[in-house]
Amino acid sequence: MNQALPQLFAKCKSENRAALIGYLPAGFPNQRSAKKIIKSMISGGVDAVEIGYPYSDPVMDGPVIQAASEQSLANGTGAEDVFELLAHSAQLGAPSLVMSYWSPIEKYGVAKFAAAITSAGGCGVITPDLTIEESATWRDESTRNEIDRVYVVAPSSSDARLKLVSAQCSGFVYAASLMGVTGTRESVSGNASGLVAKLRTTTQLPIAVGLGVSTKEQAREVASYADGVIVGSAFIKIIQQYGGGRKGLRKVKELAQSLSEGVRNGK
């Protein structure tokens, strides 16, 4: 199996902190700027990167990522751009995953997609709308290509369901902090710590929490009970506000630095 994520979480554990995971859609605001943004995120302290595959019907995403996806698709972003950005991120030394709705993966060809992740140096794929019941082919191909399978569980998941889904995960389990779509929130839902506690009884894997985390204080709070903190919309908002130029890149790095302090002060 790919060792990138296990090594990262082991390192974070030895440093008594949580991992900081940053998300950016490929081709946003354009592919050239996206590469620089990834670099700024990593130099600011992001430990692992999720490259989003923009999709026309992102039902798990709030307005910020919807707008970013629409912009990226208008730029003509396709699978090759996703793999290119993934390779770029991996070359910068961060364990790098793709996050994609199922339709683009199935259309590309499941075996071909898994192979392309490996060739790009990626370590896994997060599939927010692929249920484990529909995963037979994906299980085979991700295993064959030695990449991690990350499924997303939610506060509404039953204990039996948590057990079933986490048993199919590798690398880490993605715990959605709340019932809802992606986007920044005033506060992190109280459901998140309870969900993580329940997951601890069903899985030995690291648990990363996403949805609604945007500030240092929130990162610190989540890091107190989770192994990883996932931030997406907050980075995208910066680019939407300041653009992908020098100012935007500086703000991205500052946010990464601030979140990075947060995940180091949680334990």
Binding site: V59, D129, E133, E134, S156, R161, L164, A167
Partner: peptide
Amino acid sequence: MSAPEINAQALGHFGPYGGRFVPEALIA
């Protein structure tokens, strides 16, 4: 720890079509 068994039969397939492709949040 062995993985619990997945029951894909009960998920409303019509040949290769149908099924469920949704966030886990909606499964319950």
